[in-house]
Computed example of a mutant assay.
Amino acid sequence: MTADQIIDTSYDLMALMTVAEAVARVLEDNPSPGMAGALARLLALMTELNAPLHDALESHEGRNGGAK
Rank of each mutant, 00 (worst) to 15 (best):
31 P>R: 08
49 L>D: 01
39 L>Y: 06
60 H>A: 02
31 P>Y: 01
34 G>M: 12
29 D>A: 13
1 M>L: 12
30 N>V: 10
39 L>E: 02
55 D>C: 01
26 V>K: 08
63 R>H: 10
67 A>C: 05
26 V>C: 02
41 R>C: 02
54 H>S: 14
16 L>K: 15
17 M>E: 11
21 E>M: 06
22 A>C: 00
32 S>D: 15
24 A>E: 11
48 E>N: 11
66 G>M: 15
36 A>E: 10
31 P>V: 02
35 M>E: 06
12 D>E: 14
8 D>L: 10
59 S>L: 13
31 P>S: 02
3 A>G: 07
61 E>K: 01
27 L>M: 07
14 M>R: 11
44 A>K: 14
46 M>H: 04
25 R>C: 08
63 R>Y: 01
36 A>I: 02
12 D>I: 04
4 D>I: 10
41 R>T: 12
24 A>S: 13
52 P>N: 09
47 T>E: 11
19 V>L: 14
13 L>A: 06
65 G>K: 08
9 T>N: 02
50 N>C: 06
54 H>V: 03
16 L>Q: 13
24 A>P: 00
29 D>M: 08
16 L>E: 08
51 A>M: 10
68 K>N: 06
5 Q>T: 06
42 L>S: 07
17 M>A: 13
40 A>L: 10
32 S>L: 06
17 M>Q: 07
18 T>E: 12
31 P>Q: 04
43 L>H: 12
51 A>W: 02
28 E>C: 05
49 L>K: 15
60 H>P: 00
15 A>R: 14
27 L>S: 04
50 N>R: 14
47 T>D: 12
20 A>N: 03
22 A>G: 04
57 L>P: 00
30 N>F: 11
47 T>G: 14
8 D>V: 04
62 G>H: 07
40 A>F: 05
52 P>T: 07
3 A>F: 06
61 E>I: 02
64 N>E: 10
52 P>Q: 03
28 E>T: 11
44 A>E: 13
28 E>P: 00
45 L>H: 13
45 L>D: 08
60 H>T: 07
54 H>F: 10
29 D>G: 13
51 A>N: 11
3 A>I: 09
2 T>Q: 05
68 K>E: 11
49 L>F: 09
66 G>K: 15
43 L>I: 09
32 S>R: 07
3 A>V: 13
23 V>C: 02
37 G>M: 10
63 R>D: 01
46 M>C: 10
39 L>M: 10
